[in-house]
Design a protein around this nucleic acid. Structure first.
Lengths: 349, 349
DNA sequence: GCCGGTGTAGCAAGCGCTTTCTACAAGGTG
DNA sequence: CACCTTGTAGAAAGCGCTTGCTACACCGGC
């Protein structure tokens, strides 16, 4: 029923080995022979059997991309950039690779399961994006898995994720701490002294680093922080909305709200508006990431631009071995402070 | 070096066949034996070789998802929903399937190439999302490919895409025409008579259907359309921004702008604001899709909500054979008009 | 004219798994 | 007690491809 290499070989009157070599192009085949084979392939409408190739060659053309939430543009943009570089159709690279996008939903177990599944597929490379979960046993389990993958020849790249020592994984980390610090410093420079902070999920590295940067800026300015000013939530607008109402309840005198990311900031804006507060006259709002919609917020959002696409592209190239990994296998990607309309001088109180 | 089924079998003192059966759980194995095998698997840290299984069993656990642009939440949301249903880790389904997300960038060639790649992988199912390109030869080529996939046992589902007759593909189509018609009818009801329309790329089914709906509404209300009122572009904010400036240049007396989707609408809003026009007092703006950020626009966007997540989930289930396909293999999913702040009665001129 | 390249192609041995068919115990039945 | 189920495990034949090795021309040089 299905046509195989042997069928093509028969039709082209060559051996299966020759057909394989024509298709893989890694062995000299006389032009005339190649021609004949290609014609046979075409006439029979032959499609290589991927699993069989993978088995025989002990490699596959699958590249895994782990994301927390593919519906979130933060991950979508990175995934898109990674995919653009791994040499799928249209990519500049020769081989045609397929991107397997795995939605972990931020769950450690799923992350591990997906890693195993990718190991099972003998993935050519795996890129893990976004913050990691800070649970020690889980981190160890992931590290062990990554080591195993690396040992099996799978290239492992971390994109926007802290390094995983001794795993052989290359890390392209975002400087969340530095970005957050610059952002809060900007607010402090405007004169704000009572700043609410809406953090992400508690056990996430991204959450911690951004919060640390925020606090470092406060400390550097000698501003003492009230514990009531920090609320933890999720990385979505709903969370920002709710957290903002909570912050307002705890301390109505806040003059600025720093959000874990842009979606959260948008939720914060909505809550503020509904509470009858103007942005930035009554309360300034700042986000993080600079996703495409942030500039369209009204007022447009002051935030920290993370070069998501660039980082993803680089991660993709490194994963494909088309770009040298950074020295030491680790590099930090800086964000850029984007000052826009959502932040201003605090109201006089 | 790498541990194989045979190694596990040796350690558990059973035959490879038994190990395979324990792992696949589709054949009775005595509890004690199973126990022993599982222990061996654990001790050896054995991971099944996916390609080998796929080859031997002539099936794979890969599911392809074709999207135009994974960085766009429109596709991200659908992809996420599909993935949630195909039974990956955490899914309710038993098998563990991997989602291969293919970014076609709207290019027909890439679409075809990806389809071939998925055919090569012997994908268990393929879901194509978003509008199709309306080029006849290309459409025929895709149809042929889909038929071939279906013949090879791959389940093919179209999600938010028009039916592909005689291909064996199940279609979950969005009622773009109806939604667009309702949206424009709403604007007409408010009293608008001069409405600009920012369409998507010319050769896309989505573009055509939405435009047709818009025109149907105009016709039904007896409003004659000026050809200058339609501009084609892309499905992104930039396009909306530029198209709006163009529309304003062509006819400054427009009182409403209908955009191809929400991102375009956001761009339109930006252009209007920069032109000193208030929304909706001077110009009303409407979008399409109701993506999460649309409610956070200021004023919040009047749009047509498409049940992206629901449709994706359903597509995923149908692809997995866990839900009956609609009768005839075709169903139309309706959108819901969401009237919000960006539309209002036209200014008196 | 003999010999060692050089360029092509074929042979055949796997790659690691699934699955059909067969084998054998153990247990129930007439 | 012979016989047939029923339950469980093994043997072995592939699945379709890749690739190391071998084979064979054919060519130029001494």
């Amino acid at each position: 029923m299905t046509v195989t290499l042997a069928d093509v070989a028969a039709r082209a009157q060559v051996s299966p080995a020759t057909v394989s070599r024509v298709l893989n192009g890694n062995y000299p085949v006389a032009a005339a022979t190649r021609e004949r084979v290609l014609r046979a392939v075409d006439e029979l409408d032959y499609v290589l059997n991927g699993p069989a190739s993978a088995l025989a060659a002990a490699t596959s053309d699958l590249v895994g991309i782990l994301v927390n939430d593919i519906a979130d543009p933060f991950f979508g943009i990175m995934a898109s950039a990674i995919q653009g570089e791994i040499g799928g159709p249209g990519g500049r690279a020769g081989g045609e690779r397929l991107a397997v996008v795995c939605n972990t939903g931020g769950s450690p177990e799923r992350e591990l399961t997906y890693l195993t599944l990718l190991q099972r597929q003998r993935a050519a490379a795996v890129v893990l994006t976004g913050g990691a979960v800070e649970d020690a046993p889980h981190a160890a389990a992931v590290a062990a898995k990554l080591r195993k993958l690396a040992d099996a020849g799978t290239r492992v790249v971390l994109c926007g994720r802290p390094p995983a020592p001794d795993t052989g994984a290359v890390a392209l980390t975002f400087d969340n701490r530095g970005g957050a610090r610059a952002l809060t410093a900007h607010l402090l420079g405007l004169g704000h002294r009572r700043l609410g902070y809406i953090a992400g999920p508690v056990e996430r590295t991204t959450t911690r680093h951004r919060l640390e940067g925020h606090r470092a800026a406060l400390a550097a300015a000698g501003v003492e922080e009230d514990p009531r000013w920090t609320v933890y939530g999720r990385y979505d607008r709903r969370s920002g909305y709710e957290a903002t109402l909570e912050l307002l309840r705890r301390d109505p005198s806040l003059t600025a709200i720093v959000a874990a990311n842009d979606s959260v900031a948008l939720g914060a804006c909505a809550a503020l508006r509904e509470s009858g507060l103007r942005i930035p006259e009554d309360v300034s709002v700042a986000g993080f990431d600079d996703l495409p919609f942030s500039i369209d917020a009204v007022p447009s959002l002051t935030t920290v631009r993370l070069p998501l696409a660039e980082a993803g592209a680089r991660a993709g190239r490194v994963a494909m071995g088309r770009e040298e990994p950074p020295p030491g296998g680790i590099t930090s990607v800086r964000g850029e402070l984007m000052v826009r309309g959502s932040t201003g001088v605090p109201r006089v109180s």
